[in-house]
Design a binder for these strands. Structure first.
Lengths: 163, 163
DNA sequence: TATTGTTATACTCTATAACTATA
DNA sequence: TATAGTTATAGAGTATAACAATA
């Protein structure tokens, strides 16, 4: 008889409660925050990922290279490539190829893309105002700061081959 | 000439910087945390969503109804249904139908599922230990608490039809 | 009739590899 | 040869609606 023959979940596994799991807490908080923004995205027929691309471009002001855009939005290049095709088809973004390196591609918002973002901005800010009203402005800023610092940590590799 | 004819992102859109966006900060922090766990999932050939299901079941101890499981894991029922088929095929979960209401279905970890979770647990805890070492134990607990409170807020509906 | 869960369908994203074109 | 980005392909999740079984 091996060790696990009669294992039952009720016997307890040495693991913290589900709700105290950091990834779950982050996901849950994100779902709560996104519930405020998702209806706005739906109105514009944009997915979360498409929105992240437009949002990154709006924040950058100047155009961004595809690789940089991928890093900023946490999208893989193949996903980003197709999203760019979609957004270009909707005339929300445009591409230019710098002369000094014709492999690269600079992505920018078109006037239409800017207009969409500008039209979104007031209600996006209203959503933030509501979050700040309920959660507290200073408290939200402290939370954002903690999240940035957590994200900046460089965790060791715990995978099999790494021991 | 309409207002947006010459809109350019460089002119600035009244919107907070991308990195100060709450959903992005939460996503970024989650990506950082998941970088620790993802290699462990890959070893077991599990997706994040499949893992959330197993994790919720392990934490629950007792079996969970499909609807409750969907809420706990932030999965829609059609997604969860297919995931359950997959996990059942791998003999990691099993179903029982309570006699008092034969529409319902109780999902539990099988011994094999328990074994997988138990085998994962030590390194999962090691990953947490590393996060706590770098970020601080008390600080992490404060962060988790803030995330729970943020998630518990009930934000107003800012969509078009709601005004 | 309402509820629990599954199935159907179309779309999107993920992930890895192979590829094109520049450098 | 190496790099930037795209295309190919397979798989998985998302989202809405329709459905079957049961209450």
């Amino acid at each position: 008889m091996t060790a696990d023959d009669n294992m039952r979940a009720e016997d307890g596994i040495a693991m913290r409660p589900f709700t105290e799991s950091l990834p779950m807490a982050l996901l849950k908080a994100r779902e709560a925050a996104m519930r405020v923004f998702r209806p706005l995205l739906a109105e514009h027929g944009l997915t979360e990922q498409q929105w992240r691309v437009l949002r990154a471009l709006a924040a950058a002001g100047d155009g961004l290279e595809v690789g940089v855009l991928a890093e900023h939005t946490f999208l893989l290049s193949p996903s980003l490539s197709r999203i760019l095709v979609t957004l270009e088809g909707r005339s929300l973004i445009s591409r230019t190829t710098p002369d000094h390196d014709r492999r690269r591609s600079l992505i920018s918002l078109t006037p239409g893309g800017c207009q969409l973002m500008a039209r979104f901005a007031p209600r996006g800010e209203a959503a933030y105002a509501e979050i700040e009203r309920q959660f507290g402005t200073a408290r939200l800023h402290r939370l954002l700061n903690e999240l940035h610092e957590l994200a900046a940590l460089d965790f060791i590799d715990l995978s099999e081959e790494a021991g």
